[in-house]
Amino acid sequence: MTKVLMKGNEALGEAAIRANCRNYFAYPITPQTEIAEYMVRRLPEVGGHFVQAESELGAVNMVYGAAAVGERVFTSSSSPGVALMSEAISYLAGSQLPAVLINIVRGGPGLGGILPAQSDYFMATKAGGHGDFRLLVLAPAGVQEAADLVMDAFDLADKYRNPVMIIGDGMIGQMMEPVEFREYNTPEGIDRSYANTGAKDRPPTIVKSLFLDPQQLENNNLELLAKYRLMEQHEIRFEEYAVTDKMDVLVVSYGMMARICKTAIDELNQEGHRVGIVRPITLFPFPSSAIYKAAARARKVIAIEMSTGQMVEDVRLAVRGRRAVQFYGRTGGIVPTPAEIRQQLLKLIK
């Protein structure tokens, strides 16, 4: 397979097709509408189904329906649209249904703007909807990684029967990079025994999140909790870059912001400073242990985000008071420059 030049949004859609997903339901919103435009062209070529829903509510409930009958399915939206979906996302988790959700984040709150932001960290990792549940959240830092993670997302959703979210700032949707799609084979032995596929010659299956008996509801919550503990044991992903002993500063940053930080870090390290970065790839489960260990090797720690400070709270929990955790962020769609990050890091180094 040779490389092609793709927009992040197109690569997300193509990767879903390569992961043998044939169902996509969505409602357009900038900056991720190219996913729908791409799927409109491509899904008919592979015998798939795309419905442009009347709203995000319709789209995500179609996702619920397709997941309930045992189909691979995904939807995509941007911040305000994902917020609208949160009720059904909670239902998906409560009913233990696999699905992939893509959030290409724009500046908020409210209608906000259409430029890139990372201000949906809370929504993705802590407040994806009501009730006791978690999404497994993957945060790519480039078009290639986005394509790779979409394929993994479908497998992880099936493995845990839980919704998986891919979160990227608007830039990851809009930017173009060369991308190569890896060979993909659907894992064998996916358990579809939960699916509503007709009850001929077998007892009916029931997909539901309603448990009126409190003990049954607690049991369901404990089942979910057990899955999240397993995710914490097996699914944590992160990248360490220039992490060494006796660092002046450890940066914690994810997604595109981490890539900008790396440009600044390269420059500083060439000048003889010692700056490293831990880039969480899974935002839940969060790489707390790796951050704790790396922080112990640095004089100072800073979290850098395109928000007023969201992931920084998890970084502080991870560091457990061993270091004070500083923060730097921009919002509104303003993406910090490498020069701006360099200035912030130099202030800490001095």
């Binding site: 830039m171 930017m175 900008i260 303003i334």
Partner: peptide
């Protein structure tokens, strides 16, 4: 993209 442009403010 911004990581290739040290001084250009995106947005």
């Amino acid at each position: 993209p911004p990581w290739q442009e040290p001084n250009v403010q995106y947005g």
